[in-house]
Computed example of a mutant assay.
Amino acid sequence: MKHSDSANWHTMRKKTPVKKVNADGFIRIISGKFRGRKLPVKNVEGLRPTTDRMKETVFNWLMQDTRDARVLDCFAGSGGLGFEAISRFAEHTDFIELDKYAAAQIQKNIDTLELNHAQVFNNNSITLLEKGNTGKPYSLVFVDPPFRKDFAHLCCHALETHNWLTNDAIIYVEIEKELDFSAPKEWQLLKEKQAGQVLCKLYQRSALASN
């Protein structure tokens, strides 16, 4: 190969785009008994963990509502919200996650933390919720679905109509800001914040709502 050809070849290599493969990452628990712990997270399509800054905002909102709560983390993904609630002394936390790899990682993290008051369901959240709840209702629920699939509306109305919530349950909803979202009429909006393309809403179910 001539020197000039070699130079051209190296130039072509530099210009050729290289497909980047995103590695698995981690989430960090920001407060409570597991403060500072990093938990592995699988890099799966659509996974969008809540940022530390937003988690701090959300759990400041929930300061009086997490301890001893019975928690349901719908569309759990990394499990970041559910694990944060566990660290802040929730009584019990259930995770629902459709992706089998993400669900398996949540289970590994449950085992790593040696938790006996948490479990993960590898299932479709909407399908599971629409089957109805025959166990204890939940006092704190996280709804953080994949964007632009209109799952938030279906999930929230399934929670309301199929016996998943205590009378005064707190529900956190994280959606894209442009979504035309309508919460069940039994829910009162307590807090709301926009961060970039994300809109966060905190609701409380009316104590007068019937199960």
Score class of each variant (00 low, 15 high):
51 T>L: 11
51 T>D: 04
52 D>Q: 13
53 R>N: 01
54 M>F: 03
56 E>A: 05
58 V>L: 15
58 V>D: 09
59 F>E: 08
60 N>C: 10
61 W>R: 09
61 W>K: 11
63 M>Y: 14
66 T>Y: 14
67 R>Y: 13
67 R>N: 11
67 R>H: 12
68 D>W: 10
68 D>Y: 15
69 A>G: 04
72 L>S: 00
74 C>S: 05
76 A>G: 03
78 S>R: 12
78 S>H: 12
78 S>T: 09
79 G>A: 13
79 G>W: 06
79 G>Y: 01
80 G>Q: 08
81 L>E: 01
84 E>N: 12
85 A>E: 10
88 R>D: 09
89 F>E: 15
93 T>M: 04
93 T>Q: 09
94 D>C: 06
94 D>R: 13
94 D>H: 11
94 D>E: 12
95 F>V: 08
96 I>G: 03
97 E>W: 10
97 E>R: 03
99 D>P: 07
99 D>E: 15
99 D>Q: 15
99 D>G: 10
99 D>R: 13
106 I>V: 11
110 I>P: 12
111 D>N: 15
113 L>R: 14
113 L>G: 13
114 E>C: 11
116 N>V: 06
119 Q>M: 09
121 F>H: 13
121 F>C: 02
122 N>A: 08
123 N>M: 15
123 N>C: 10
123 N>V: 06
123 N>P: 00
125 S>T: 15
127 T>H: 14
129 L>N: 00
130 E>N: 14
135 G>W: 06
136 K>Y: 09
138 Y>R: 01
141 V>K: 03
141 V>Q: 03
143 V>I: 07
143 V>A: 09
144 D>M: 03
144 D>G: 12
148 R>G: 09
148 R>N: 14
149 K>Y: 06
149 K>P: 02
149 K>W: 00
150 D>L: 00
150 D>A: 14
150 D>M: 11
150 D>G: 01
151 F>M: 14
152 A>M: 01
154 L>R: 15
155 C>N: 04
156 C>A: 03
156 C>T: 02
156 C>L: 02
156 C>I: 02
157 H>Q: 05
158 A>M: 06
159 L>F: 04
160 E>H: 09
160 E>I: 06
161 T>P: 02
162 H>R: 05
162 H>M: 02
162 H>Q: 10
162 H>Y: 02
163 N>Y: 10
165 L>P: 01
166 T>A: 04
167 N>Y: 12
167 N>H: 12
169 A>Q: 07
170 I>A: 08
171 I>C: 12
